[in-house]
């Protein structure tokens, strides 16, 4: 069996760190206290085939539910981000079935009524707030649902901006809503119809289409590896401290 760098890291952490007990799906394991839930599960012998993606807290694949001793509260976290705690009882909930409506986005005009038609269950929300409480990204889920009920797509898009589509909200919903799918539609509408188009982007696309960069690109294509490396390392970069008005010295392609 080959050993990956990751395995080595995990093992070496194990040597130094203190072991603590955690319960994975009811079974007790002793794991190093400094590990994330994901690494602790791997340490305990689990192998991720699903339920893990980016390992960086953005893909939403690794939702985990847990409880602590003598505490009625439900806790959630992303397995790749949350550090284990002694005596936690956990299970992964990487996927939760939630109905996603089928639509051809470009047939939509971006009206609230279209969201109502695709997701009438929106109106079954009882404002219990279980969704907000369970969201590992601290999104105010109940509030974006409230905004959508009153047709405020923009507000819903803004409130749900940090959503990573993990689906935990849907797992707790009294009204059986697929909140995150509805919010995604709201963000799509907001981006396409309610946000002003970026003018400079339009100009740029027109420039590209008019062939303004053709020659330069062809030149790059024809370069050998050494030349490419040279060009890359020698390129002019925007300094980290640059102000709003910074422009490159070579403005041929601006």
């Amino acid at each position: 069996m080959s050993t990956t760098t990751e395995d080595k890291e995990t093992k070496s952490a194990a040597i130094e760190a203190k072991l603590i007990p955690i319960y994975i799906m009811g079974k007790k394991y002793e794991v190093p206290e400094s590990l994330t839930i994901m690494k602790a599960m791997e340490y305990a012998g689990y192998k991720y085939i699903r339920g893990c993606g980016c390992r960086g807290g953005v893909c939403g694949a690794c939702s985990t539910i847990y409880r602590k001793p003598n505490d009625y509260k439900i806790y959630t976290g992303l397995a790749c981000q949350t550090v284990v705690e002694p005596d936690m009882y956990l299970t992964q909930l990487p996927f939760y079935p939630a109905m996603r409506a089928t639509y051809n986005f470009y047939d939509l005009e971006g009206k609230p009524e279209e969201i109502f038609e695709l997701y009438p269950e929106l109106f079954r929300c009882v404002a219990c707030n279980a969704c907000t409480k369970v969201c590992p990204m601290d999104v105010e889920v109940m509030d974006y649902i409230a905004a959508l009920k009153r047709g405020d797509i923009k507000a819903a898009a803004q409130i749900s901006f940090d959503c990573i589509q993990c689906g935990l909200c849907a797992s707790r919903c009294m009204g059986e809503l697929p909140q995150y799918h509805i919010a995604q539609l709201a963000r799509r509408i907001n981006g396409t119809y309610l946000t002003p188009r970026a003018e400079h982007l339009k100009t740029m696309v027109a420039n590209i289409q008019a062939g303004r960069y053709k020659e330069a690109l062809e030149g790059l294509k024809a370069s050998d590896e050494d030349n490419l490396k040279k060009l890359y390392t020698g390129r002019e970069m925007e300094p980290a401290t640059a102000g709003e008005d910074w422009t490159p010295k070579d403005s041929t392609y601006l």
């Binding site: 109106f123 929300c125 009882v126 404002a127 109940m142 509030d143 649902i145 409230a146 009920k149 009153r150």
Partner: peptide, 12 residues
């Protein structure tokens, strides 16, 4: 003098 609540949800 009135002011719309900045945050509110559907009353049901």
């Amino acid at each position: 003098e009135y002011e719309e609540l900045p945050r509110w949800n559907c009353c049901g």
